[in-house]
Simulated scan of single mutants.
Amino acid sequence: MDCAFCRLIRDGTARWVVREAESCAFIPVNPLAPGHTLVVPTSHFTDVFDTPPDVLTASMTLVQRVAAAMRTALGASGVNILSASGPGSEQSVPHLHFHVVPRWVDDGISTWPTGQSRRRPTGDPGTQLAAAGHGRLLIRP
């Protein structure tokens, strides 16, 4: 199966925050907030039910690192982490993924997860997140 995320990974065409052997992170096409990032396994797994534990661990470790970068680089006071798995969950892309959305007390997202943040970035949030790792977070293709 050649899914949208597999194509992005294969072609290297995403706005990358992190690329690692087991998982990667990139900015989605329509972010909910400045710095909204998707974390996905680099190999295709449909959802949490068919993902091996070691791949799930690598992905969640990256989720945690991205969330920490959001706090330091973007000044986020919190994050929302969302993942949908299976037909009844309204999963949008059949490739396991985690939305990591930075949040601020005054961001105006009152209808999570469908609202849009009022917060406007200064600079490119993806670049700021990548730089927060001081060269450890971003691995260029």
Rank of each mutant, 00 (worst) to 15 (best):
M1E: 12
C3H: 11
F5M: 03
C6L: 00
L8I: 12
L8F: 07
L8D: 06
R15C: 02
W16H: 03
W16M: 00
W16D: 09
R19V: 07
E20S: 08
S23P: 08
A25Q: 02
F26A: 07
I27K: 02
P28W: 07
P28T: 07
L32I: 02
L32D: 08
A33L: 10
A33F: 00
G35E: 03
T37S: 09
T37E: 06
V39N: 07
V40D: 01
V40I: 15
V48N: 02
T51I: 15
P52S: 11
P53H: 08
P53Q: 07
D54S: 11
V55N: 02
L56D: 07
L56Y: 12
L56T: 09
A58C: 10
A58T: 03
A58N: 06
M60E: 06
T61C: 08
Q64H: 13
V66P: 08
A68H: 11
R71P: 04
A73Q: 02
L74Y: 05
L74N: 01
G75E: 09
G75I: 09
A76K: 02
A76M: 06
G78P: 00
N80V: 05
I81V: 15
L82G: 08
S83A: 14
A84L: 15
V93G: 05
P94T: 13
L96H: 01
V100G: 05
V101F: 01
R103V: 06
W104G: 03
D106W: 04
G108K: 02
G108I: 04
I109S: 01
T111Q: 13
W112M: 15
W112F: 15
T114R: 14
T114L: 14
G115K: 10
S117N: 01
R119V: 12
T122D: 14
D124Y: 03
T127V: 15
L129Y: 09
L129G: 03
A130K: 01
A130Y: 06
G133Q: 08
G133N: 11
H134R: 15
G135T: 09
L138H: 15
L138G: 02
I139S: 14
R140W: 01
R140G: 05
